[in-house]
Design a protein around this nucleic acid. Sequence first.
DNA 1: ATGGCTGCTTTGAGCAGA
Length: 259
Amino acid sequence: MKIATWNVNSLNVRLPRLLEWLPLAQPDVLCLQETKLEDVKFPRREIEDAGYVAHFSGQKTYNGVALLVRAGLGPAADVTTALPGFTDEQKRVIAGTVGTTRVVGFYVPNGQAVDSDKYRYKLGWCAAATAYLSAELAAHPSLAVVGDFNIAPEDRDVHDPAAWAGQVLCSDAERAVFRDWLALGLADGFRLFEQPPATFSWWDYRQLAFPKNRGLRIDHVLLSPPLAARCQSCRIDRNARKGDKPSDHAPVIADVADA
DNA sequence: ATGGCTGCTTTGAGCAGA
């Protein structure tokens, strides 16, 4: 099963690129972030025509997540769209069960700047997410947690670690959250394999960041032990960042062999 | 390249993203 995540930065703008990418990448499950669409405006039919069942939780302007499942495998069961015990207007979570695999899609808050209100919101959100993932793992041995985490876990995930030291996305508290999630028993799918140095998943639109490869690895696929043991590959599709009207994020795709 | 982004919004300057 190919499990993927992609922050599309407006599904309205990115739909043509998504429809072009789906047959190339052929994910079985795809989590989207920053759809920025109210549910009534979600392009359900276009995605169905592409061979996918869509679940979604959106809002106007900001945030918004979706879970796409290949038609033969979907729809997902037991779909949920919130962190238990964390009251939040922002649509950042979607989870569903596909076969025996539980897939959780996150759009973790950006945090804007260390010590800002948005940063405090990010850390509170993450604390609730940690508790949620602990419970999800207990209930679902086969668990994949994917999405835009807005955390660059280590210096090697940052094009210029000195410039980013202590900044939002790289701060100690954010990196501690990522380690907390690994400590639950999840593996960073990308790091299960040898990877080219300076592989990133996000590049700023400004200052030629993409051609200069000045990026960050902030989009992730975490896998519980049974899935990690069967994972054959995990890669970032840099090609999807090229060309006209790209998202500023590239997709991450993990290929997990059937049990 | 002596500036250099994109998408959204009660349409247009300001916010947000990361």
